[in-house]
């Protein structure tokens, strides 16, 4: 790819950049599109933090879609990204039953265009939040859960962690797992999206 001139990139360059996690392309996407999308979200009454969440969640959804299958856009990437953000925002409003914020125009646009299915948007956003909460766990908690869910046995985890017994490893894993679930229950975003 010729990166000598940024200017307007084509759809394929954006999608490849996202799929491959190209830092330069992603920076460019932030520079080029985030301000207007944040501005749009703010106008709909959400906080700046929520707006940033929506933008990152949309990029994650696009990443997952681009990774899973060949994604061919029929509109400019900018329009596609905006539509994903808008639908994510709509979904958040619907979850929160903040129908007052859903304007007629948004409602129409939401039903007319559906760049990514609801389920995929929800999965991307929920996954993002869960990973954030997972990152708040103690280091050993993260490691134990990760190892177990990567398929390692409690015996292997006990050895790796230097625990005295497998029983303790099981207890610790359960404590950590429960702690993650509690963090999720307390998180408003998870409640809106799932619970």
């Amino acid at each position: 790819m010729n990166r000598a001139v940024w200017g307007k990139l084509d759809n394929a360059t954006y999608l490849t950049g996202i799929r491959e996690g190209d830092r330069d392309i992603l920076r460019h996407i932030y520079d080029e599109f985030q301000p207007n999308i944040i501005s749009f979200c703010l106008k709909k009454g959400v906080s700046e933090e929520e707006a940033q969440d929506v933008f990152a969640g949309a990029l994650l959804a696009v990443f997952q879609q681009a990774k899973e299958e060949s994604l061919e856009l029929k509109v400019p990437f900018s329009a596609y990204l905006f539509a994903v953000c808008r639908n994510l925002l709509m979904k958040s409003f619907r979850s929160k039953k903040r129908f007052a914020e859903v304007t007629e125009g948004m409602e129409r646009a939401y039903s007319d265009s559906n760049p990514l299915p609801d389920e995929q948007l929800e999965r991307a956003m929920l996954g993002k939040v869960i990973r954030e909460l997972f990152g708040k766990l103690a280091d050993d908690c993260q490691r134990i859960i990760q190892m177990r869910w990567d398929g390692e046995s409690y015996e292997q985890i006990k050895e790796a962690m230097g625990h005295g017994s497998e029983g303790y490893t099981r207890k610790r894993k359960h404590f950590c797992h429960k702690h993650l679930l509690e963090l999720m229950k307390k998180d408003e975003r998870v409640r809106d999206l799932y619970l």
Partner: peptide, 10 residues
């Protein structure tokens, strides 16, 4: 238009 509001492009 591209950067601000894309509703019309749909």
């Amino acid at each position: 238009l591209e950067g601000l509001n894309y509703t019309w492009l749909q």
